[in-house]
């Protein structure tokens, strides 16, 4: 039971860092996707959504290849003394970012699309530059989308199993997360501890989903007027 604390700590760190990184990455992407449609945007949208339909093992396999010592990507990092990102925490973060990307992009994109043209016209006639408008109008008006994205990404990262197992290798205190710990407890027939940890995750997941519903009700739909 001693390493359970370590697994929880790694999980929380991984979910927090992934969430912060994804909010930064997904915002410009969601903004660009929300401004009109085109074939290029449809293709990018489909690619972003791939992790929803692909088995985590497929994603994990390709990530394992991409972050392995032989990959062209890693070759670029060899001069800096980095041979591989597999079985490292950084590798885990990168994998989680890819795996949860659709859960960040979609709510933020929806929120941006929901704003319509009007607030942007209004801001322009009040002499707000496009950048100013983005920060002082679009971001605050889309705050519900950001909250939803953050909660979904955090929860989805905590719920990861296949990808982190393949590229993380379950090194205790480094890449071993709660979901993998539970699996190992069951393998070792340590059911009482598996019960405790699994129950904890149930409570966590329920809390997140309930929070989403409460946010939805409190903030309502963004209004234009």
């Amino acid at each position: 039971m001693a390493d359970v604390g370590g697994a929880i700590w790694v999980t929380v760190c991984l979910a927090t860092i992934t969430t912060l990184c994804l909010l930064i990455i997904a915002t410009p992407l969601a903004w660009w996707l929300s401004r009109g449609r085109s074939l290029v945007k449809d293709i990018i949208t489909a690619i972003v959504a791939l992790p929803i339909v692909l088995p985590p093992t497929v994603l994990g396999f390709y990530l394992l290849v991409a972050m392995g010592p032989q990959s062209p990507l890693m070759t670029l990092l060899h001069p800096f003394g980095i041979r591989t990102l597999n079985f490292s925490f950084v590798g885990l973060v990168i994998g989680s970012i890819v795996y949860s990307l659709p859960f960040a992009v979609q709510p933020i994109r929806n929120a941006f699309e929901h704003l319509g043209r009007r607030p942007f016209d209004v801001a322009a006639t009040l002499r707000a530059s496009p950048l100013d408008t983005f920060f002082s109008v679009a971001l605050p008006m889309a705050r519900k989308g950001f909250l939803t994205a953050a909660l979904l990404v955090f929860a989805h990262t905590v719920g990861e199993f296949g990808v982190v197992l393949m590229i993380g290798g379950a090194i205790p205190g480094k890449t071993e997360v709660v979901s993998i710990r539970i699996w190992q407890m069951v393998e070792q027939l340590d059911w009482p501890n598996a019960h405790r940890l699994a129950g904890g995750l149930m409570v966590f997941a329920f809390t997140v989903l309930l929070s989403l519903l409460i946010i939805d009700r409190r903030l309502g739909n963004p209004r234009h007027d």
Binding site: R118, P119, D121, V122, A123, A124, T125, L126, R127, A128, S129, P130, T133, S136, V137, P140, M141, R143, P222, R223, H224, D225
Partner: peptide
């Protein structure tokens, strides 16, 4: 548009919903 000193009053309400009345005027 944002470099023109133009005042535009739209047909339907166009106030920024994330701000108060004061906030809209300050904007």
């Amino acid at each position: 548009v944002h470099r023109r000193r133009v005042g535009y009053v739209f047909q339907e309400a166009s106030l920024l919903p994330h701000l108060t009345v004061r906030g809209n005027l300050d904007f």
